[in-house]
Design a protein around this nucleic acid. Structure first.
Lengths: 121, 121
DNA sequence: GTTTTTCCGGAACAGAACGTTCTGGATGGA
DNA sequence: TCCATCCAGAACGTTCTGTTCCGGAAAAAC
């Protein structure tokens, strides 16, 4: 997890402290913390949460999930879907959800792909 | 990390899918995912991020660092739609968008006005 | 009712990953 | 010079994970 190590170093830099100081803040062995910051080890989930809490940031940011990605064609499609779905009636929405999940969520390990006819449409 | 396992199960329940289905959505071995949901194993950071991304939630929430807001039935349907749509291929997604917009966006009355076609579909 | 499919979890094993310790180099201040 | 601080390589024992095999329960299909 390269981004995690990068974010750890960034965070300490923004706080104006050394990695060793950050380690002590988080009550972690310095060498251990350094391994995280150098992308050589990964913490367990509880330690990850602890680091985020003490350094006053979010795990999403530390894991690189918080960046707003540029507007791709696909993102725009998902956007349109949301907008359209929002204006549906509950019943219409249920229908769309059912159909979409049928496409998206793999059910069988079975090889044969028989598709039962969509009823009530 | 007890809270993580709990949140995993909650998330699948809210999406109206089984843990096995959630595992397939996340492209993880079912047994492996079950170990996470049963608080017997913990994922590495990349897998954690992947789960949060695909199940359309945040790692902060999964790790118990953020409180979750109460959701309406309708919000859960929109949630399910998002999760399912995200795992579609581009072509499948375009189809769903087209169908949903057809349901949602009323055609103009017969005033002769032209409706611009849906681009890129 | 019978069969098939799906879901779930225990047990176990090889291999991967981790925490820790020891070590040494680099830098800066007293 | 001496000392404190920061940093990272290597190694070792231990812990933990991914995976596989297995069986039972429940639901669905026949």
């Amino acid at each position: 997890m390269e981004i995690f190590a990068k974010r750890l170093k960034e965070r300490a830099a923004k706080l104006g402290i050394s990695n060793a100081q950050a380690a002590r803040l988080c009550e972690l062995d310095e060498r251990r913390y350094a391994n995280y910051a150098n992308d050589q080890r990964e913490p367990d989930l509880m330690t990850l949460a602890k680091i985020a809490r003490i350094l006053n940031t979010s795990t999403d940011h530390l894991l690189g999930l918080a960046d707003h990605q540029p507007q791709t064609e696909r993102a725009r499609l998902l956007d349109r879907l949301n907008v359209a779905a929002t204006s549906l009636t509950d019943e219409e929405l249920r229908t769309v959800v059912t159909q979409t999940e049928a496409l998206a969520i793999p059910r069988p390990k079975k090889t044969g792909k028989k598709m039962p006819p969509i009823s009530g449409v």
